[in-house]
Design a protein around this nucleic acid. Structure first.
Length: 486
RNA sequence: GGCCCCAUCGUCUAACGGUUAGGACAGCAGGUUCUCAUCCUGCAAAUCGGGGUUCGAUUCCCCGUGGGGCUGCCA
């Protein structure tokens, strides 16, 4: 199944767009066919510089880079495939040619109506409580007049002539049987006066020429599908299958917008979200596996995705679950993978980390606490620098640690830990000897372990005292303990 | 206004005529614990309304209601 993602380069890659792209990608992968990226830059006024780069890089980051069309080659935007060009502004002659064909075959007509006239017409129709539709003012112009006016430089568009007596029926893969009456369909503009096609013409021409047989797009396109079907019919081309995915919504259930949400894929990337988490989250927004599985790799999605389990109703974009998935994915990495992914980052602030043979052991202590990679340097700082130890952190009323017992506590710690032989310095010996010492002292665990942890890390929250002491080693541990009152 | 789509916990969703309406996130309460996080247990939480069809409707049909999309020489 050849599928495609066809965004307009009007800005960054949108999370809604990414989900549409993901589903198209999964479908193509399932059938071992190509996933195409086509750029729909037919609105000259709305195209934004750099948007194509954002889109291509965004898809690559998410792990669903296109196989054909506009792709990334050695980090540069390029085009690949034998059905190109894949950027619509480079296909203008093609649209003109096919528009002329429709004109010739009587499926379209030339229209000279000015925007001002159309505006006036719509206002009147609305005032009369009629559906705003083109009134076919130019439907039956004399062919010679048309030629003269064009020669004279008059602005014109080409409109499709919708057969009012037809009933257009089709089956949408996610929605089922659909039908529209021809007389409720407007004579859509196909070719604009600037020579660019509208979406409608471009979609039909391109998807036919590019061999796309499954059109996946979001629900907002459902009402214009009959126009597209009529065009396929007029050209004598086989119609593709359509699948309209549910919309992603703001909290107030309106169509997801950047005004009310953070919708830029790059924004999530910059905040530190993993592509695995975002993809997992987006996949589940409008689709479910029919099982209780919540965590999906891209591979698993390819195996399990099915159109039958795509939701019909729109889904609110609520990122609470994304945050949970982010945590799950951070923990899902093997330790060596996790360590290697944060090593550079930590190394930037603490160069010692780069050559640290104990790095993995340290990384292990933060993996279950971390949410974003960029938190790693801070979370690991006490392994590489002497923490600034504040009395108000060490003394903790909740743990019944008061300033007056601290000297005794520190002494117990220094004595107990100091008596462990260097080669025996491990989690087991540290914890058992400390527990024994605590029992003997009559103090509570928290009264001894909280200060130990606070002194070693300088923090209220951190990995456990035993673990930190073990990884820090006997020498550093004792040095920090002895330094508290120095 | 016209056309079209949709409707289960707060959110994402399962149940394709028979279930105490299930799961996950979030919430709340416990447990584990030196803190935080993780983890574990439990609690609370939903079928929009009305008619049909049926022995039986979340499920099928109709009518409402509600929400949404489209209605551009935007996509």
């Amino acid at each position: 199944m050849r599928t495609r993602f066809a965004p307009s380069p009007t800005g960054y890659l949108h999370v809604g767009g990414l989900r549409t792209a993901l589903y198209a990608y999964l479908l193509a992968r399932q059938t071992k066919d190509n996933f195409i990226l086509r750029i729909e830059d037919t609105d000259q006024g709305r195209s934004v510089d750099g948007a194509v780069e954002q889109i291509v890089h965004g898809l690559a980051w998410a792990g669903i880079a296109p196989d054909e069309g506009v792709v990334l080659e050695n980090g540069e935007v390029a085009q690949t495939g034998d059905k190109g060009p894949y950027i619509q502004s480079e296909r203008l002659e093609l649209y003109k040619k096919y528009a002329d064909q429709l004109l010739h075959d009587g499926f379209a007509y030339t229209c000279f109506c000015s925007p001002a006239r159309l505006d006036e017409m719509r206002k009147q129709q609305q005032a009369d409580h009629r559906a705003p539709m083109y009134d076919r003012h130019c439907l039956s112009l004399d062919p010679e007049d048309i030629a003269d006016r064009i020669a004279a430089g008059d602005k014109y568009v080409i409109r499709m002539k919708v057969p009012h007596d037809e009933l257009i029926e089709f089956t949408d893969v996610v929605r089922g049987e659909m039908s529209f009456r021809g007389d409720t369909i407007d004579d859509q503009v196909l070719l604009k006066s600037d020579g660019f096609p509208t979406y409608h013409l471009a979609h039909v021409v391109d998807d036919h020429l590019m061999g796309v047989d499954m059109i996946t797009r979001s629900e907002e396109w459902l009402p214009s599908t009959p126009k597209h079907l009529l065009l396929f019919q007029a050209f004598g081309w086989p119609a593709p299958t359509y699948a309209h995915f549910p919309l992603i919504l703001n909290k107030d259930r309106t169509k997801l917008s950047k005004r009310r949400n953070s919708v830029s894929v790059n924004g999530y990337r910059e905040k530190g979200y993993l592509p695995e988490a975002l993809i997992n989250f987006l996949a589940l927004l409008g689709w479910n596996p029919g099982t209780t599985q919540e965590l999906f790799t891209l591979e698993e999605l390819i195996e399990q995705f099915s159109m039958e389990r795509v939701q019909k109703a729109g889904a609110i974009f609520d990122t609470e679950k994304l945050d949970w998935l982010q945590g799950q994915w951070m923990r899902k990495f093997s330790l060596s993978e996790f360590a290697s992914r944060i090593r550079e980052l930590v190394g930037e602030q603490y160069p010692a980390a780069l050559a640290d043979t104990e790095f993995e052991k340290k990384a292990a202590l933060i993996q279950e606490r971390i949410t974003f990679f960029h938190e790693a340097p801070d979370m690991m700082s006490f392994f590489y620098t002497e923490p600034a130890v504040r009395m108000d952190v060490i003394a903790n009323p909740k743990q019944k640690v008061t300033a007056d017992i601290l000297p005794d506590v520190v002494n117990i710690l220094i004595e107990t830990l100091g008596s462990i032989h260097e080669p025996d310095w491990n989690l087991e010996s540290i914890s058992s000897s400390l527990i024994a010492a605590i029992d003997a002292s009559g103090l509570k665990k928290g009264q001894v372990l909280w200060p130990l942890r606070a002194i070693l890390t300088g923090r209220e929250y951190s990995p456990g005292a035993f673990e930190v002491a073990e990884v820090l080693g006997k020498e550093t541990t004792l040095k920090r303990l002895k330094g508290v009152f120095a």
